[in-house]
Design a binder for these strands. Structure first.
Length: 810
DNA sequence: AGCACGCCGACT
DNA sequence: GTCGGCGTGCTC
């Protein structure tokens, strides 16, 4: 057949900010792009009546003309030369969108580094210059004006008026912020032959130029970074520019990676000798790597039992089989210590993805991985999407950590994504923890996961001795409201021996709230249903939900009395008490307030590690992953704060936290001691944490969960609706409840609608429903539909959240 | 977001 | 009868 040219059609997921579907749109591939276009590329397409330019992802390319009859528009351009997402990523996005009830477009975006996500820019072009001079002067010489949300409302209204009269048009731009870093290099043109000619042409006093010629001669054939060359020889950039003009050198730009760990010291570390228990684990996992089995292992090992060494040696095994490895750790444990240990073992093969990286650095690490230049990827939650091929093993440390679940769309849990990828790559997934989540432990029970145990600490040290202090008793004779006599004595003892102490407090701020003793008035946030927290460092009252800040009242705003008092406890207040009780002790305070700035967290820990302080006082963040040999005493000031919360996981969280923080005591050659102060001495979570009996806690908690119909016995989905007024939020949820009762079988439970524990946050009102079920074939379809439908109410102020396997019911 | 379609009230 | 209000729905 002659001249029978087949047209190419692309299935594209479009990124329209206000309207999202999981349905791909069909676009015609213009002939000049037919050669280049591939699934996984980003493109710019016209959309809607105004054919404004938006970003899209190409899912598929084929000759198949769609059956239905609609206008088919042409792809405008491709944003990539090679696909940014491979076949695996596209499949994963499919699964994720369905599983997490989110839009495919947000799943695709989530897999890419920030800089590759589309930014839309609007600008206005003046078409008719015959307008008010006041308006005309806003436009630049190209008759363009940037159009963003910062624009003055009055001007905005005028612009809209002009647009109606066709005097201006709105131009859309799809931006790709991904930039490859270019570095300038110097290539010398000076040789032993030509240098004398140049030298002779200079005046006698031109010492700098002569020096330049000599340095350039020294370079020979090597090229050198311009910045380095200038710095080392104290030339200015102008000197180099002049030399270039004289034809002494040429400047070449080369693509380089931003190197975030350039100045990090890494000493190489070699594999450590394994204990018998570790050896069993490593052997089993290595076998699975070799046989390409997608088993999930639950590596349950007490603190200090050497889980990390098991990870490192199994990774090494995967590398030996020329496979790659993915290792996930909670953000908080991505400390320099940890980075050093992994980099020390695998050197330049490692790519790190953590939140301290700038967008550019993250993009560069991503490209290194994508090009196959890194074989080991270590990172927090989103690193689970690292574009690795040939994965031989996936490791998730501290698998019970709730930070693996993203708390915005798409609400994925990195653990589930890791297991999905394990299946896709036919490789084992290792979930490690001292205190596994009940879900994972239960799957281990049913042999869905293979359990691996590390019951002994590596150097044979006993577990730290844990003492419970009943604060109801202790307060009668306590030296201060937050310190029992027992704890204070212990602190003094350990400090006397020049050892370090870690104190954990379950709350931040100075004192949790301010109350009037005369009338009982409590100062509350004007935007949220929560009392304000006192912060002594800034001398203000802050809301921990919306950030509202106001000054500390001297007289009660309600009854005008001056009997206003502080109640509760916070890290700042405890710090002051410590200074009074132990004036000579050096205290480091670590909480959200002192670690807000980038790297502050690491710097504080390093200072403590160098023994620049005796006591580290902090909130929960100090429970994770820090490992200091001189810490021999851990004190928990208030073990119970989480227990009072109306949440089915509060016992589990409390147990995990106490076990973890206890593990911080006495890791090296010194015995550790732990003192836990509590008002609920008899509570099982506290009792079992005290004796470090995970298995007994697990058994007890499972009974409770079974009786109450909670996970892991039931699946749960939480639906939350919020509006700027309570009535609408409430009404929407009753409507959803009505629909749900049509869809669900008798065996499913619908809890609610109820207002959230903190119903109003930032002047939005939240209502929620929790569904508990075993098998509901129609539920998924209903929720997908609800997700799409609810968009129509978004302009009216609705925000709807569907959260599968919610972390909490609060 | 932006445009068309459509159903109700006020109007030349 | 007709013009135009905006509520509703759709965008390959």
């Amino acid at each position: 057949m002659r001249g029978e040219r087949m047209s190419l059609y692309a299935q594209v997921i479009v990124d329209v900010p206000t309207m999202q579907t999981n349905k791909p749109y069909t676009y015609l591939v213009p002939s000049e792009l037919e050669e280049q276009i591939q699934a996984g590329m980003r493109c710019v397409v016209p959309f809607g009546k105004g054919s404004r330019k938006i970003q899209g992802f190409v899912l598929d390319v084929s000759n198949q003309k769609p059956d239905e009859d609609f206008e088919i528009k042409k792809i405008i351009s491709l944003m990539d030369f090679v696909p940014v997402l491979n076949e695996e990523a596209l499949q994963l996005a499919d699964w994720m969108a369905n599983y997490t009830f989110s839009f495919k477009i947000s799943c695709l975006q989530t897999m890419l580094p920030n800089v590759m996500r589309a930014g839309y820019e609007k600008s206005i072009r003046l078409l008719d210059e015959n307008v008010e001079p006041e308006i005309k002067k806003l436009f630049d010489q190209n008759n363009l004006l940037a159009f963003d949300d910062k624009m003055d409302a009055k001007i905005r209204r005028k612009i809209y008026g002009l647009r109606k009269k066709d005097k201006v048009e709105i131009v859309y731009h799809v931006n790709d912020r991904a930039r490859v870093k270019e570095t300038e290099f110097i290539k010398s043109k000076i040789t032993a032959e030509n240098i004398s000619a140049f030298l002779n042409a200079q005046r006698k006093t031109a010492t700098k130029k002569k020096r330049m010629l000599e340095k350039l001669l020294d370079l020979g054939n090597d090229s050198v970074e311009r910045i380095k060359f200038q710095k080392q020889n104290s030339f200015t950039s102008n000197d180099v520019k002049q030399a270039e003009n004289s034809g002494w050198l040429s400047l070449v730009s080369k693509e380089t990676y931003r190197n975030p760990s350039e100045n990090a010291t890494t000493e190489s570390s070699s594999p450590r000798k394994l204990t018998a228990e570790q050896n069993v684990c490593v052997t089993r996992i290595n076998q699975a790597i070799e046989q390409e089995e997608s088993d999930v292992f639950l590596l349950q090992g007490v603190t200090g039992s050497g889980k990390t060494e098991v990870y490192l040696q199994t990774i090494a095994h995967a590398l030996k089989l020329s496979k790659k490895a993915l290792m996930l750790v909670p953000e908080i444990s991505l400390t320099p210590q940890m980075v050093r240990r992994v980099k020390g073992r695998f050197g330049p093969k490692v790519a790190m993805l953590h939140s301290a990286l700038s967008d550019g650095e993250r993009f560069d690490e991503w490209r290194r991985i994508e090009r196959g230049e890194a074989q080991v990827v270590v990172g927090a939650r989103s690193a689970v999407f690292a574009p690795l091929d040939r994965i031989g093993i996936i490791i998730m440390d501290e698998e019970h950590e709730t930070s693996y679940k993203q708390d915005e769309m798409p609400r994925y849990n990195a653990r589930e994504v890791a297991i999905w990828r394990g299946k896709h790559h036919h490789c084992p997934v290792v979930l490690g923890s001292a205190t596994p989540s009940l879900e994972s432990r239960a799957r281990g029970q049913k042999s869905v996961y293979q359990r691996l145990l590390l019951t002994k600490r590596i150097n044979g040290r006993p577990m730290p001795h844990v003492e419970l202090v009943d604060m109801r008793e202790a307060l009668k004779s306590a030296p201060s409201p937050d310190f029992s006599a027992e704890l204070l004595t212990k602190i003094k003892e350990h400090l006397k021996r020049d050892e370090q102490v870690v104190l954990m407090l379950n709350r931040r701020g100075y004192s949790s709230f301010v109350m009037c003793r005369e009338c009982g008035f409590v100062l509350k946030c004007p935007n949220c249903d929560i009392s304000l927290t006192l912060h002594m460092d800034t001398h203000s009252m802050k809301c921990h939900y919306c950030g509202h800040e106001e000054s500390i009242p001297r007289i009660c705003p309600s009854c005008r009395s001056n009997k206003i008092r502080y109640y509760g406890t916070g890290t700042q207040k405890v710090e002051e008490q410590l200074h009074e009780l132990l004036p000579n002790a050096r205290v480091l305070r670590m909480d959200v307030d002192t670690t807000r700035r980038k790297g502050a967290h690491e710097r504080l820990l390093e200072r403590f590690g160098r023994h620049e302080a005796d006591i580290l006082l902090g909130t929960q963040m100090i429970a994770k992953g820090l490992d200091f040999p001189d810490v021999t005493l851990v004190g928990v000031l208030n073990a119970d704060t989480a227990l009072g919360l109306p949440d089915f996981r509060s016992s589990e969280k409390t147990f995990q936290l106490l076990t973890q923080v206890s593990g911080r005591a006495g890791r090296a050659d010194k015995n550790g001691e732990v003192v836990i102060q509590t008002f609920n001495k008899e509570h099982y979570a506290i009792q079992f944490a005290c004796t470090q009996e995970y298995e007994r806690f697990y058994a007890y908690e499972m009974q409770l969960r079974h009786r109450l119909g909670y996970p892991p016995y039931y699946f749960t989905i939480k639906i939350t609706a919020s509006y700027d007024n309570e009535a609408d939020a409430c009404r929407k949820m009753y409507e959803i409840r009505r629909e749900l009762s049509q869809v669900l079988s008798k065996s499913a439970k619908i809890l609610g609608p109820t207002p959230k524990a903190i119903m109003r946050v930032n002047n939005r009102y939240y209502y929620q429903i929790v569904i508990e079920y075993k098998k509901e074939p129609r539920l998924e379809e209903y929720l997908q539909d609800l997700l799409v439908r609810s968009q129509t109410d978004e302009p009216k102020g609705l925000k709807l959240i569907i959260d599968r396997d919610p972390i909490s019911f609060m």
